[in-house]
Design a protein around this nucleic acid. Structure first.
Lengths: 193, 193
DNA sequence: CATTTATGTCAGCTATGTTGACATATTTTG
DNA sequence: CAAAATATGTCAACATAGCTGACATAAATG
């Protein structure tokens, strides 16, 4: 008999079964989390791809196209379609880089800001409900947990990105004084699929 | 000046900015996590949709089609295409329900088991690396965190599903003695998109 | 027996990803 | 300065995985 009739609390007893539980919870959590913006998106005739683009451009103004590609890990073509719609419909504007005039720095317009806020609202609420009851230590545990799930080779990019807003996903001090509206390390790492 | 030059540890100091950091870490973590199976999938000519189906059928043998639809929150048509390929290529078999002969209970074949194991291996490793260094309390924190991100109306389904394998995502004892190879509550809740 | 349920299926559409090739402007380098 | 590298944009074609709505069958249920 593998288990007694009342296995009580069973706080992650052992092995792969518990990991599988976490993996599935992770899947279910993300499944529901990503649905949060859908009502708003429908009103604008946009999809989740637009959500992601608007989110990152809004939160990291001045992002370059290459940065976005590295964040989303999709191809230029795939981004181009979505980005074009957002630019054409005046949610995002592109501005020539002042140091490097090949660059097209991305910024949200007023409309874009409004959309970004509408989209993030339900997601922020979802996380607030989850996070607020927790102690500071528990919150750090979660931050560490999420960060350590990120692919080794991508962690530096995430750190560098977040440093732009003066944040640090590791708990260590942010790398530098944030230089608002500047892009992050151009260490374009080619990743598959 | 909003912040001093060295904000040191800044353990989720306040407000929405920290929530946004968590949200983005969640996104990056899931982005990399879902890529884990891709190499194996490519070898079989399958996609991530196949991965999800094989995973859940393997972990919850005897799942009904309706259960799978409720887990994945996709339409019958969308599942049908993927499921048909898996059945035709002998990764999954369908078995008439003994109590209710309308049901088609789903099981993985030997091939299906093998594929499921290959697919879960890198994901389990990713989670093991993340989880193993943590204390039991921290692990529980993470379980609670993920569970509470799940939509209220879906939590019961998740509990009922996991109870089949004698697990409980909440830490409370699993609902019932698991009755292997049986489906869970048919409380089909219609959700959008 | 009438209704509901579980499943399957037809036809067509949409969103978002892919590849490979190529063009332009600009910066960097030898 | 000329050549090479870089950042971006774009063309064409295609693949995957979602969606809708309608309809069919078999079995269970009232």
């Amino acid at each position: 008999m593998a288990q007694t009739s009342d296995d009580k609390i069973e706080p992650l007893s052992s092995g792969e079964e518990n990991i599988l539980t976490l993996i599935e919870l992770f899947y279910f959590a993300y499944r529901d989390f990503t649905g949060d913006g859908d009502d708003v998106l429908d009103q604008y005739g946009f999809g989740r791809a637009h959500h992601r683009v608007v989110h990152f451009v809004h939160h990291y103004p001045g992002l370059r196209v290459a940065d976005l590609l590295n964040i989303l890990k999709i191809t230029k073509q795939s981004l181009a379609r979505v980005l074009k719609q957002l630019v054409d419909q005046d949610f995002i504007i592109q501005q020539e880089g002042s140091k490097d005039r090949r660059e097209r720095l991305l910024f949200t317009t007023e409309r874009g800001n409004s959309l970004a806020k509408q989209l993030s609202e339900p997601q922020i609420k979802r996380f607030e409900k989850t996070i607020k009851p927790l102690s500071a230590e528990e919150q750090v545990t979660i931050k560490k947990f999420l960060f350590s799930l990120i692919q080794q080779g991508n962690r530096h990019d995430v750190i560098t990105l977040m440093a732009q807003n003066g944040h640090s996903p590791t708990g260590k001090p942010a790398l530098e004084k944030p230089v608002k509206t500047r892009h992050y390390a151009p260490n374009a790492e080619i990743t598959g699929k």
